[in-house]
């Protein structure tokens, strides 16, 4: 997979399309330009990093519909909307649905390129987060049910002794499970473990771990993930 970001441009006006493509090319972006949203959907590779520059008003289906289509297919793409009319309702709808920017034609090249840069950066970040979350979840998937159970209690701030009492097993065994889980998750401190579980729960990567919310969030993660464990117990 190529890591160079691709800027997809979709506009029904060939003149606009060509001009935008030029502007992006001269800035060194790889550009895929499309006259119609249908063509874009056919060509689009969701694995490629980058963003979409999308015209709102197009004859067959407009940009907002395309945004909805992408959301419905769980394709995460950062979109810079461009439009001829400064339509407040459309811009609100677009921004609510996660658009990066909403530019009214004619726009300044600096603003446009900044928006594209911003979208690409967001995409890169999101991809990094997604990768990390994937790795956290994959690692969590490698834990045995008992290890998960122990981890849940650990993250909830229980002492080994207390966990042993709760689960009705020896404290020593708890220590073994806990050490194995820490090892499988690739963390060395309890704090790191907590951050990972929170990130996995809220689906995003935290720059600063919110310590005060750790317990509740971790509990919620594990309460969902360990339902089968509970049923096992009863």
């Amino acid at each position: 997979m190529n890591d160079e970001p691709i800027v997809y441009v979709v506009d029904d006006d060939p003149g606009v399309l060509k001009a935008l493509k030029r502007l992006l090319c001269v800035e060194g972006y790889a550009v895929h330009a499309f006259n119609a949203p249908e063509d874009f959907l056919q060509d689009h590779d969701q694995r490629a990093p980058g963003c979409i520059v999308l015209d709102i008003s197009m004859p067959t289906f407009n940009g907002l519909v395309l945004q909805q289509t992408l959301l419905a297919s769980a394709i995460e793409r950062f979109i810079v909307f461009i439009t001829g009319h400064s339509d407040i309702a459309a811009s609100v709808q677009a921004m609510k649905a996660g658009a990066v920017d909403f530019l009214t034609k004619p726009f300044n090249d600096e603003d446009f390129l900044a928006a594209v840069r911003n979208a690409i950066a967001k995409d890169a970040h999101a991809r990094k987060v997604r990768l990390e979350l994937q790795s956290i979840r994959w690692r969590m998937g490698t834990l045995t049910p008992r290890e998960q159970q122990v981890l849940q209690h650990v993250v909830a701030g229980r002492l080994n002794k207390q966990i042993a009492a709760d689960l009705g097993i020896a404290e020593k065994t708890i220590k073994v499970h806990r050490a194995r889980a820490m090892e499988k998750m690739g963390v060395e401190s309890l704090a790191e473990l907590v951050r990972m579980t929170v990130e996995a729960d809220i689906g995003s990567v935290m720059e600063d771990p919110p310590y005060n919310r750790t317990a509740r969030c971790a509990a919620s993660v594990f309460s969902r993930r360990s339902t089968d464990t509970h049923s096992e117990r009863h």
Binding site: D13, G15, V16, R22, L23, K105, P106, F107, D109
Partner: peptide, 8 residues
């Protein structure tokens, strides 16, 4: 539309 195109 053409004006925007010209500017870009």
């Amino acid at each position: 539309q053409p004006l925007a195109t010209i500017l870009t």
